[in-house]
Write a protein that binds this DNA or RNA. Structure first.
Lengths: 220, 220
DNA sequence: TAGATTGTTAATCGATTAACAATC
DNA sequence: TAGATTGTTAATCGATTAACAATC
C-alpha cells in the first residue's frame, strides 16, 4: 500500500503573501481605467511604467493566480480585469452593514465606489435617536438594538465599525456573536478574534501620523 | 591635504525603512494607552505580547531613533511616549486644510483624534454653494476660490483631499503650486509630484477589496 | 551582587528583481 | 519565421527574528 502523505490538503494550498494581496486592488483599478479608455491589451512592461512598479513584480504577482497572459502579446485588459474581479470576490454582491451612523458612517454609505464593485450597504445602525429612522442614500439607519433581528433576516458578511473607540470592542464582539465574518474597523483599537474572523483596519490617525513623520524628518 | 570624502552628508543620513515608519504610530497609540492606565515602565517583552509582535522587532525599531530603554529595567512609558511624539512631529501644531467638504471631509473635521495629537484643521474648502459658509466643529467651509488667499495668510503644510476622483488631480496640482508640501489623499487616484511633495493615500475601496479577497479565499 | 533586559550583531526568512528559456 | 513578451527559476535585496554580550 503506497503511503499517501501529502495527499491531504490543508485547505489553503498555496497561500498568497499579504504583500501581494495588498497590491491586487491597485492592479484592478488600473485595469479598470485602461478598460474605460478602450485599451485592449497591455504588456507587463507598459503597465509597470504606468504603475511605477517593476514588470517582474506584476508578472510574479499575477502568476500566483494563474497564467493570464500570452507570450508575445501581453495581457488582454478586459479578460484580466474580469479575472482580477473574480479573485477579489467582486463578481458577487457583498452585503455590508455600517455600525455607527455618524459622519464617517454616512460618508461610507454615500461612497459610490463601493456599489460599482459589488459592495452593497444594506443598513446603518446607531444608538442616537436623532439618526435612527433617517435614510442615507436610500439606506435606513436602524436602532442598534435591531442588529440581531436584522442579521437574522439578511445575509451579511461584512460590518464596518465607524463608532467611537470606547464602544468598538464591545460592538465588535456582539457582531461576531451574531455571525459577522469580517470587520472593517475604523476605530483606533486592535480587534482580536479567532482566526476565521477577518479584520481590516483603517486607522486614520496612524495614517496622518506617518505623513507628519515624513514631513518633519525630511531635512534631517 | 587629507581627502575629506564622506564628510559631505546627504541630508538624510540613516533613512528609516517604510516598514518601520508605518509601525511607529501604533507604538505611540499603545504607549498612550499604557500611560492612561498609569503604567510607569514596560519591557519590550511585555509590550510585544500586548501588541502581538516580537520583542526583537520593538527593540530594533526603537533603536533606529536612539536608545530609549535601560538594561534590566525596560522603557519608561511616559518618556518613550513623549520621545515617539517628537519623532512623529506631534510636539508641534500641524495645520491642515480639507479640500472637499462632503461627508468624508466633514468626518475628518469632526474627528477628535486629530486635535489631541497636534493636528489642527483650520479650514474646509468646497465648490458647493450649499456648503460654503457652513461651519463644522467651529471650522468654516470656504469657497475653493479662496484657497490662494487663505494659504497666503496661514501656514499650512498638509491638505486632505476628500473630493471626487475627477477633480483630485487638478486640485492637487493647484495646492502644490500654492505651497502645500503634503497631500493626504482620499481619492482613488495616484498623485505624482516631485520628490519633496509627500503623498499619503487612504484608498478605502482598495481596503475593502482586500477584505473581500480574504473572505472569498478563506476556504480555498 | 544577581537578575533582568537592553542594544546590537549575526542568522534566517521573505519579498523583489533579474534573467532567460519557453512560446505565442 | 522573427520579434515580443510571458511564466518561472535563480540571484539579490531587505526585513524580521534569534542570540548574546553589555550593562543597569
Amino acid at each position: 500500500m503506497p503511503d499517501n502523505k501529502a495527499v491531504v490538503k490543508t485547505g489553503n494550498e498555496k497561500s498568497i503573501s499579504p504583500a501581494v494581496i495588498k497590491r491586487l486592488p491597485r492592479y484592478y483599478r488600473y485595469l479598470g481605467d485602461l478598460l474605460k479608455n478602450d485599451v485592449v491589451r497591455i504588456s507587463s512592461k507598459e503597465l509597470s511604467q504606468r504603475m511605477n512598479v517593476t514588470a517582474s513584480q506584476i508578472r510574479q504577482d499575477l502568476n500566483n493566480f494563474g497564467g493570464f497572459g500570452q507570450q508575445g502579446y501581453g495581457y488582454n485588459v478586459e479578460y484580466l480585469y474580469n479575472e482580477m474581479g473574480k479573485i477579489l470576490g467582486l463578481d458577487r454582491t457583498n452585503n455590508i452593514i455600517i455600525v455607527g451612523a455618524g459622519n464617517l458612517g454616512q460618508a461610507l454609505a454615500n461612497n459610490q465606489d463601493f456599489d460599482s464593485n459589488g459592495f452593497k450597504i444594506i443598513g446603518l445602525f446607531d444608538v442616537n435617536p436623532r439618526l435612527i429612522g433617517m435614510t442615507v442614500r436610500g439606506v435606513e439607519v436602524y436602532d442598534i438594538d435591531m442588529l440581531e433581528t436584522f442579521l437574522k433576516e439578511h445575509e451579511v458578511m461584512i460590518a464596518a465599525l465607524t463608532l467611537p473607540k470606547s464602544k468598538a470592542v464591545k460592538v465588535a464582539e456582539q457582531l461576531v456573536d451574531l455571525g459577522i465574518k469580517a470587520l472593517w474597523n475604523f476605530a483606533p483599537v486592535d480587534l482580536h478574534f479567532s482566526e476565521d474572523i477577518l479584520v481590516e483596519n483603517v486607522h486614520l490617525a496612524e495614517s496622518i501620523m506617518t505623513l507628519s513623520y515624513r514631513i518633519h524628518s525630511q531635512n534631517q
